[in-house]
């Protein structure tokens, strides 16, 4: 785990110095919320089944943006090779990026969530439960997207391939996260926690699977 924390710290430090991935992701989430509320109308966009779905779809694409940006930085001077050639480098790279990108996506999620609440004038019945759903929901996103970006790392069609690979794998996560957040919005504490439990299970399964196949995917 020491290697993972070192990679995560390196990632977050580079992000802090050049927060273009974070800024792009937040802009994307805000634009999507705004456009959707205009297209379907604020009444529909505010519904507790629609607003969370939009939120998680926006976060999924935000996760793709920040993960792709992270690997672009690794490829700029072949920095990734230096890490992969170190003992335990593959595992450290995957786990470190998972930690750092989950933190970045959580930050995007918090900013995007506040923007969505403000833009759509949402009332959050159970803010604590909503935070739990967001915290657990963001772990599975980089767990899957990192593998997809690694698989397509040196392919020209990467921008199109990553969403095609990520969306089917993340459908269970999107369903659980949308329900957990939707029920937190509407005030159903038990239902929200039940879906959050499922989110935790999905996050663990994806993280373990990711760690298992990361080396092969990167190779």
């Amino acid at each position: 785990m020491r290697g993972a924390w070192l990679v995560a710290a390196r990632e977050l430090r580079a992000d802090a110095r050049h927060p273009d991935g974070f800024a792009t992701a937040v802009t994307f989430v805000a634009a999507l919320v705004l456009i959707e509320s205009i297209v379907v109308g604020p009444q529909v966009a505010r519904e507790t089944t629609v607003a969370p779905a939009l939120y998680w779809i926006a976060l999924l694409f935000a996760a793709i943006v920040v993960t792709t940006r992270s690997f672009d930085r690794e490829l700029a001077d072949d920095a990734i090779d230096a890490v992969l050639a170190l003992p335990g480098g593959r595992d450290a790279l995957y786990a470190g990026k998972l930690i750092a990108l989950a933190a970045t996506i959580a930050a995007v999620g918090l900013v995007g969530g506040v923007l969505q609440i403000a833009l759509l004038d949402l009332t959050l019945a159970l803010p604590g439960h909503a935070l739990v759903a967001v915290a657990l929901g963001v772990i599975a996103l980089p767990a899957v997207v990192i593998i997809d970006v690694a698989l397509t790392l040196r392919l020209r069609g990467r921008a199109a391939l990553v969403p095609v690979l990520a969306v089917p794998a993340l459908l269970p996560q999107l369903v659980a996260a949308t329900n957990a957040l939707g029920l937190a919005l509407s005030g159903d504490a038990t239902g929200s926690l039940a879906w959050s439990g499922l989110l935790l299970a999905i996050a663990l399964v994806y993280a373990v699977l990711g760690l298992t196949i990361a080396g092969t995917a990167i190779e």
Binding site: R10, R13, A14, D15, R17, H18, R73, E74, A76, D77, D78, A79, D81, A82, A85, P87
Partner: peptide
């Protein structure tokens, strides 16, 4: 186990300093 590979590109991560 203890191998240092320096490729034909510098392998330094952009966003970090030389020291980092």
């Amino acid at each position: 186990f203890d191998l240092l590979y320096l490729g034909h590109r510098p392998q330094m991560l952009h966003g970090l300093t030389v020291r980092e």
